[in-house]
Write a protein that binds this DNA or RNA. Structure first.
Length: 479
RNA sequence: GGGGCUGUGGGGUAGCUUGGUCUAGCCUUCGAGCUUUGGGAGCUUGUGACCCCGGUUCAAAUCCGGGCAGCCCCA
């Protein structure tokens, strides 16, 4: 039995002490570590490898959709940063500035990009002259810095993060809006089919939209401490930046027109969502399609049983497509190996002992349910493929019920507060008044509108001011 | 935005109130050796720490100030 208090595993239960559980998960499963700069975390190989897979998949879809990669500088001169007023106001409180180099003061301070609209659009203005130059659709995979002063939380609230930022320019609004649908699909596919995370997609209220955008739409996720998290985002900028940065072209009739633009992103924050939603008290659970090593083979023997080792390596070759790890460590016990790989989230464990060897079998154990199956060697490949799919589907289903079981509807302030306290995402009637949104946050200890619901608000009253509601919104506490 | 708590080897902690016995104790990890292996084995042995800067004092892990870092709660 697992000894208490001396384990390398997680020492608290997810459902009892979420914060500590999360912290231990991140550190002990070797996903991330703190650095000496507050809010700037280190992505260790185990999480970075997953990020690379996500990047790879999305990037492939981007390219198929006609989006090209580019790279723009991390430093943005103050003068260019200041051209779009709403954008500036939205970001300036958390911009980090470079003011000197060596011991010389710079003639103009440089922003460390919190996002790259401003620097990219200066180039767009130069590059776009004719309708023939459109559409221009560029993406970059990079880091961004937003110097927040709230308590940092690994993955969820970090001052530096990795993401993609896509920035498109089209000749017409229609094309720009059509791109939004494609991007939604690309992000959704990645989140659902790789990360096994179903989300809620919807449009932000005016108050919550991206600084400078016409509208913002995002995916939203629910994690077990009752918080909602914002995932991949799509911002339609209309002609706001085009006008501020003078991005215009001559159309087929020789008329000068401003371009229509979009911005879209997915960040490393999603890794945190994925780790939290699927993992358990034994540690990390990695959705199979994102697992670098999908199986671990544990030979159970005196460690120098040549026949077992030989068989293990033979299986490793046969199962190469699943990048198996063979745990040949002979200085720890079998039980410890089991705990170790469970902590690290390998989707399938294959146990191979004399018993199996004799019967030409392998014992297959699922990480998410710990269910054991004895499989004939001859059927192994097929069984593994099927089990990996099964695990993915189970993780997705569980995530889906988690989400669905935590959405409620309320039509009074009192019910709303009660449900927020019970850690729910709550659908409420609200009016468009910004002050009502702010008030909502105040009375609820930080719950904010996530997105506008399709639910008909006709005849309903705003739960804050009591006037006619404009819409239903989903609201919850967030990071 | 406001408040609170915390910082001792890789991880968890004792010591701090009442400064000296601390040459900093314990568990775990890690290294070496023996031994063991179907759910965190055992023995021997070794490595490894008082967050940083300043102050008070004959003397600071301990008290004071500042900084940095982490956590929690409220808005």
């Amino acid at each position: 039995m697992s000894p208490v208090g001396v384990s390398k595993g997680i020492s608290v239960k997810k459902e009892e002490n979420f914060s500590q559980w999360y912290q231990e998960l991140i550190l002990k499963a070797e996903l991330a570590d703190y650095s000496s700069v507050s809010g700037c975390m280190i992505l260790r190989p185990r999480s970075y490898a997953i990020w690379e897979k996500i990047k790879e998949s999305i990037d492939k879809d981007f390219k198929e959709a006609g989006i090209e990669d580019a790279y723009f500088p991390v430093f943005i001169p103050q003068s260019s940063f200041e051209k779009e007023k709403e954008h500036l106001e939205g970001f300036s409180p958390e911009v980090a500035w470079v003011t000197e180099a060596g011991n010389r003061k710079l003639s103009e301070r440089l922003a460390v990009r919190p996002t790259s609209e401003t620097i990219m659009y200066e180039s767009y203005a130069k590059w776009i002259r004719s309708w023939r130059d459109l559409p221009l659709r560029l993406n970059q995979w990079n880091n961004a810095v937003r110097w927040e002063f709230k308590n940092p939380v690994p993955f969820f609230r970090t001052r530096e993060f990795l993401w993609n930022e896509g920035h498109s320019a089209f000749a017409t609004e229609k094309e720009a809006l059509a791109e939004g649908k494609i991007l939604k699909q690309i992000y959704q596919k990645c989140c659902e089919e790789l990360m096994a995370l179903p989300g809620l997609y919807g449009r932000k209220t005016e108050n919550e939209k991206f600084a400078g955008a016409v509208f913002t739409e995002k995916f939203h996720y629910y994690i077990q401490n009752g918080r909602a998290l914002e995932g991949p985002s799509f911002h339609h900028d209309g002609q706001n930046f085009a006008k501020a940065y003078n991005i215009s072209f001559l159309d087929k009739n020789g008329n000068r027109q401003y371009v229509w633009q979009n911005t879209y992103a997915i960040s490393t924050r999603m890794l945190g969502v994925m780790f939290v939603v699927h993992s358990d008290n034994r540690g990390l659970v990695i959705p199979p399609r994102l697992a670098e090593n999908k199986i671990v083979i544990v030979p159970i023997a005196s460690g120098i049983d040549d026949d077992l080792l030989k068989k293990a390596h033979e299986l490793k070759k046969i199962l190469a497509e699943f990048s198996p790890i063979v745990d040949t460590r002979d200085y720890i016990t079998t039980g410890e190996k089991f705990y170790d790989w469970e902590l690290k989230g390998i989707p399938i464990r294959l146990e191979l002992g004399q018993r199996e060897l004799k019967n030409q079998e392998v014992t297959l154990v699922k990480r998410n349910t710990f269910e054991k199956r004895v499989v004939k060697e001859a059927d192994l490949k097929k069984a593994i493929s099927e089990t990996l799919e099964e695990i993915h589907n189970e993780l997705f289903k569980n995530a889906e019920s988690l989400l669905n079981n935590n959405i409620e509807k309320a039509e009074t302030k009192k019910d709303f507060l009660k449900l927020i306290k019970a850690k729910k995402i709550v659908e409420i009637p609200l009016c468009k008044n910004v002050r009502c949104e702010e008030n909502l946050k105040e009375i609820s200890g930080g719950a904010k509108p996530l997105f506008i619901s399709n639910y008909d608000a006709k005849g309903k009253k705003c739960i804050i001011c009591g006037n006619d509601a404009d819409y239903y919104v989903y609201a919850a506490k967030t990071y």
